[in-house]
Amino acid sequence: QKTCLICGDEASGCHYGALTCGSCKVFFKRAAEGKQKYLCASRNDCTIDKFRRKNCPSCRLRKCYEAGMTLGARKL
C-alpha cells in the first residue's frame, strides 16, 4: 500500500508530480489554481495528517509544494 506524501492516507497515484491521495490531489488543484491566499493561524508548522488535513489549508498547500507538486506536472 502506497502512502500520500502530504497527509499519510492511502495514495491513489502520482498526481501533479507527487504520490498523493485523491483528497490532496483535488485540494492542490483547487488551491494552486485559485486566487485565494491562505494564512496559517499558528506558526506555519501545523501537523497535516489524514485526520487534520482540513484544519490548515496554508500548511497543507506548503507541504504540497515541498513534495514537488506543480500544476504543470503530468499525471504518471
Rank of each mutant, 00 (worst) to 15 (best):
Y16W: 08
C21Y: 01
V26S: 14
K25F: 10
L39K: 15
D49H: 04
C24G: 00
G17K: 05
G72R: 13
K35W: 05
N44P: 03
R74D: 11
K63H: 03
C7V: 00
K29A: 11
D45T: 09
D49M: 03
D9Q: 10
A73F: 04
C24I: 00
K25I: 05
I6D: 02
H15Y: 05
Q1K: 15
Y16K: 03
C24Q: 00
C14K: 06
I48C: 02
T20I: 12
C14I: 15
K50L: 12
Y38M: 12
Y65N: 10
L39W: 10
Y38Q: 10
Y16E: 04
G22P: 12
C46I: 01
K35Y: 12
C56N: 00
T3P: 05
G8P: 01
K35A: 09
K37T: 13
K50P: 13
C14A: 13
G72F: 15
K25R: 10
C24W: 00
N55T: 13
G72L: 10
S23V: 02
A31H: 08
K35D: 08
T47W: 05
D9M: 03
D49C: 03
K29H: 12
L39Y: 14
A41Q: 09
Y65R: 08
Y16S: 03
K37G: 09
S12E: 14
Y65D: 06
T20H: 04
C21T: 01
I6Q: 03
S23Y: 08
K63T: 12
C21G: 00
H15L: 05
D45A: 09
N55P: 09
D45M: 06
E33R: 11
T47N: 10
K25V: 11
G13S: 12
A41H: 04
G72M: 07
Y16P: 03
D9T: 07
H15S: 05
I48H: 03
A41L: 11
C46E: 03
N44F: 07
T47C: 09
C56H: 01
C21M: 00
R74I: 04
K29S: 05
S23G: 11
G72Y: 10
C24M: 00
K50C: 08
N55V: 07
A18Y: 01
A31F: 05
S12F: 03
G17R: 04
C21K: 00
C4W: 00
T47K: 15
C14G: 08
D9R: 04
L39G: 13
F27S: 00
G72V: 10
K63Q: 09
G8N: 04
Y16C: 02
S23F: 08
P57N: 10
G8V: 01
K29Q: 07
K50A: 06
S23M: 07
A41R: 11
N55D: 14
R74V: 10
A32V: 12
C4R: 08
E33K: 13
G13Y: 04
L71V: 09
C40A: 01
K25M: 13
C4Q: 00
Q36N: 08
Y65K: 06
G8Y: 14
A31N: 07
L71K: 14
C14Y: 12
G8E: 11
E33W: 05
K29E: 15
N55W: 03
Y38C: 04
F27G: 01
A41S: 11
S12C: 04
C7K: 00
K37N: 15
K29L: 04
T3L: 12
G13P: 08
H15E: 15
C14H: 12
K35E: 15
C21E: 02
K35I: 09
G13R: 06
G22Y: 06
D49K: 04
R74C: 15
Y16G: 03
G72Q: 15
G22S: 11
C4V: 02
G8F: 03
L39H: 12
C64V: 01
R52A: 07
P57T: 08
A32Q: 14
I48F: 05
C14D: 15
P57K: 11
C64P: 01
K35R: 13
R30V: 10
L5K: 11
C7G: 01
R30S: 12
L39C: 10
I6K: 00
I6S: 02
P57F: 12
D9H: 15
L39I: 14
C56I: 01
G13L: 08
L39P: 09
A41E: 09
L71G: 08
K29T: 14
S58I: 02
L71E: 08
Y16T: 03
K37H: 15
A18V: 11
C24R: 00
Y65M: 09
N55G: 10
S23N: 08
S23T: 05
A73P: 03
C40P: 01
S58T: 05
L19W: 14
H15K: 08
E33P: 08
P57W: 13
D45I: 10
K29I: 04
N44T: 07
C21N: 00
L19H: 11
L39T: 12
L5M: 05
F27K: 01
C40T: 02
D45L: 06
Q36V: 15
I48G: 04
A31D: 03
C24A: 00
A31C: 10
T47Q: 10
S58R: 09
C21Q: 02
V26H: 14
E33G: 14
A32T: 15
L39Q: 13
Q1G: 14
K29N: 08
T47G: 09
C21D: 00
K37E: 15
E33Y: 06
A41N: 07
L5V: 07
I6T: 05
D49F: 02
T20A: 11
C46S: 01
Q1H: 03
C56M: 02
N44Y: 04
D45N: 13
K63D: 04
G72C: 10
L71R: 05
G8Q: 03
K37Q: 15
S58L: 05
C64M: 08
K35V: 12
R52Q: 10
S12L: 14
K63A: 07
Y38W: 05
Y38S: 08
D45C: 04
Y38G: 05
Y65H: 09
D9W: 04
D9E: 06
R74Y: 07
N44V: 04
R52V: 14
D45G: 07
D45K: 15
Q36C: 06
Y16M: 08
Y38I: 15
A73W: 06
Y38P: 13
Y38R: 05
S23H: 12
C4Y: 01
C14N: 04
V26G: 13
A32R: 07
D9F: 02
A18R: 05
V26Y: 06
T20V: 14
K37P: 13
C56V: 00
Q1P: 03
G8L: 07
D49G: 06
K50H: 09
D45F: 03
F27M: 00
C7N: 05
C24E: 00
C40E: 02
R52N: 10
K50R: 10
Q36E: 14
F27E: 02
T3V: 05
C40N: 01
Y38N: 05
S58A: 12
P57I: 07
K37C: 06
T47V: 13
I6M: 01
D49E: 10
K29D: 05
C46G: 00
D9V: 06
E33V: 09
Y65G: 05
G8C: 04
T3C: 14
L5A: 08
H15M: 09
T47H: 12
F27L: 01
L5Y: 07
H15T: 14
K35S: 12
C46T: 02
K63I: 07
A31T: 14
K25Y: 11
E33F: 04
F27C: 01
K25H: 13
C46Q: 01
L71I: 12
C46P: 00
Y65W: 11
D9A: 09
G22I: 05
R74L: 06
A18L: 07
E33C: 15
L39S: 08
K63E: 13
A31P: 03
S58E: 15
